[in-house]
Amino acid sequence: MSSTLIALSTLLGLAAASIKSCPANAPISCQTSGTIQNTCCTEVQGQILQTQFWDSSPATGPANSFTIHGLWPDNCDGTYEATCDSSRAYTDIDCILQNKGHGDILSYMETYWKDYQGDDESFWEHEWSKHGTCYSTLNPSCYTNYQPEDELVDFLNTTITLFKKLPTYDWLASAGITPSSSKTYTNAQITNALKSKFGATPILSCTSGKLNQVEYVFNVRGSVANGQFIAVNPTGTKGNCPTSGIKWLPKDLSTTPEANEGSCS
């Protein structure tokens, strides 16, 4: 199939409304040479990885779905910058979302963006501070009428919006690949099933031969908040799953940790 293109501008209606507009012909990330002139409209770290977990024990999330790991920028070659702005290492993300009227985002995250130890809030804070603060197109200077944490809301919303468009469990199940305590699969079986839906090669990661992570790679035209995400093959980043004998274990929901719940004033 042709490469997947997801236009977030038609899906998002949150803080992205105050993001500065970009020209329709803005350069696509990772496809420019030399210095990027408008870092609000072309990502400096331009290869974007939507990363999903499969935790079987301790189990996280629903039995029939992967969960969100994060949305990672890299330098188009597998290297990346991290923790780029400690002054925006926001905490109490659950309270920020509630106070800004985005309880719907928080509710989705509480189901699909899970920490294997039950500390979802710390996990979200880590993903934002390590990766989210490094997006050039989400810099506060890229907004008009900027309000604190607008870019955090956009980061979280983009991450879950892409996740909803990448139903890994369903794509594998449609190819006859389902979790099993005894059956194994080849790397090619899993890769081809996902590639046929996504339009580009995903990155598969395993622990002791067990599938536990899938990464989908994009370049983006415009802002991460409301741009066009174009499926591409990864450059510089490789998975570590074996060529055969890959196990995809069912989730043991009896091992799911109880989430730590905070309170907002």
Rank of each mutant, 00 (worst) to 15 (best):
C206F: 10
K197M: 09
S205T: 08
A200M: 11
S180N: 12
K183G: 02
L204H: 03
T178E: 14
A173N: 12
S182N: 14
K183L: 05
T207Q: 10
L194I: 07
T168W: 05
S205I: 04
W171F: 10
T186N: 11
G199K: 03
Y169H: 09
T207V: 12
K195L: 13
I177L: 08
G209W: 10
P202F: 05
I203E: 12
F198C: 07
T191F: 07
T201M: 09
T191K: 10
I177T: 02
T168G: 03
A188G: 09
S174A: 14
A175I: 11
I177V: 06
D170H: 11
N187H: 15
Q189T: 00
I203K: 15
Y169P: 00
S208W: 14
K195Y: 07
A193I: 01
T168A: 09
A193N: 01
K183A: 11
D170C: 06
Y169C: 01
S208F: 13
L194P: 00
I203H: 13
Q189K: 04
T184G: 04
A188Q: 15
W171C: 01
I177G: 00
S196H: 10
S174E: 14
L194G: 02
P167T: 06
S182A: 11
F198H: 07
Y185H: 08
K183N: 12
A175D: 10
T184W: 05
P179V: 03
T191E: 06
C206K: 02
T184I: 05
N187I: 07
G209V: 09
T207M: 04
D170N: 14
L172A: 01
A200Q: 06
D170K: 12
S196W: 09
S205H: 07
T191A: 02
T168V: 08
Q189I: 01
F198R: 03
D170T: 15
S208C: 09
P179L: 06
K197Y: 10
P179C: 05
G199V: 05
S196C: 08
I177E: 01
T207R: 09
N192S: 15
D170F: 07
I203V: 15
S180G: 08
T184M: 04
P202A: 12
T186F: 15
A188E: 14
Y169S: 02
S180C: 11
S208V: 13
A175K: 10
A175T: 09
A188I: 13
N187L: 15
I190K: 02
N192I: 10
N192K: 13
W171A: 02
L204W: 03
G199N: 02
T168C: 04
T184S: 11
K197E: 14
G209N: 08
T201D: 11
T178K: 05
L194R: 03
Y185R: 06
G209C: 09
W171G: 00
A188S: 15
A173V: 06
C206L: 03
G176E: 04
F198V: 02
A173E: 07
L204T: 02
I177S: 00
S196M: 10
S205C: 07
L172N: 00
S174H: 12
A175R: 06
T184A: 06
D170S: 15
T186P: 01
S182L: 05
Y185P: 00
G209M: 03
A175S: 15
Y169F: 14
